[in-house]
Amino acid sequence: MACAVVLGLAVACRPPEPTATGSARIVSQVVFADEELWHLGPDVRPRVVGVSPMADDPRYSDAVGLWPAELPRPTGAEAIAAQNPDLVVIAEFTADETRALLEQMGVRTLRLEGWDGFADVRRHIRELAGAVGAEAAGTARIAAFDAELDALRQRFATAGAPGIVSWEDGSVAGGKTIFADAAEAAGFVDVAAAHGIAGHRTIGLESLVAWDPEYIVISCTDDCTAREQEFAAQPGIAATRAGRRGGVIAMPTHHLYSVGFGALEMVRQLGERRRGTDGSAP
C-alpha cells in the first residue's frame, strides 16, 4: 500500500512529457525569455506556466503587461518546481544549486549565457526557439531583428563617427557588449572599446574626463531630462565635449540594458539624439 502511494507521488511529480512541438510546461527566469516567449507566438504562449518576477518591472522589461497577472512569477527552486515544468530558462547568474536541483528532478534547463553583442541576441533567440519547438518562429524573429537593425544602420550611417561612452557609476561598456554593437549601428565609436576595454569594466571619473567623449550615455528610470542636466553639471563632466555640447544622454534602463529587441530602441534613440545635437543624419 505504502509503495503504491510513493509510486503514485513519484509519477504525479514527474515532469510532463514534452509535446511533439517542444516543451509542454515552460518556466522563464530571464527577462529576455519573458519577452521572447511571448513573441514566439500563440503556439508557445499557452505552454508558459511561469515567468520571472522582473517581467513586470518597467525598469528592465519590455514584456510589461503582456503576460496575464494570474500567471505565476516563481522565484527559487521550490516555487519553480511547484509549476511542474519540463523546461526552465535560466540565466548565467542563476544559482548553481537551483540548476542542479531542477536537473535532479528531471527538469531540462536552458542556460542563456554570454551577451557579447547582437550575434548573441540571435543565438539566444535560436536556442530558445529550438528548446520550445518553435524554430520557424525563431527564424522569423531573427529576420525581423536584422531587418530593423539594417534599416536603423542605413538611417544613421554618416561619415565621421563621434565617440561615445556608456557610464554607470564608474562602469563602462567596452567591446564585445550589446552597447558596443548598438553604438556602432547608430553611427558612433565606443570609446571604451577603442581604449582596449572588452566587456564591462570599472574606470575612474578622471579617466572618463581624460577620454573627453562627445557623448556619454547614462541610465535613468524616471525624469531623464533632469538626470541629464544633473550629470552634465558634475565637476569634471562639465568640461568634456559631452558636457559642453549637450552630449549627455540619459536613457531608460529597459533600453540601455536590454539584451533583446529593446537594444534596437537603444540604437534608435542614440541615432536620433546624434541627429538632434550635430545634425549629421539626413
Partner: peptide, 10 residues
C-alpha cells in the same frame, strides 16, 4: 579656474 577647461577640471 574654468569649469569647462579639461585640464582645469582634471
Amino acid at each position: 579656474s574654468r569649469a569647462d577647461d579639461l585640464i582645469d577640471a582634471q
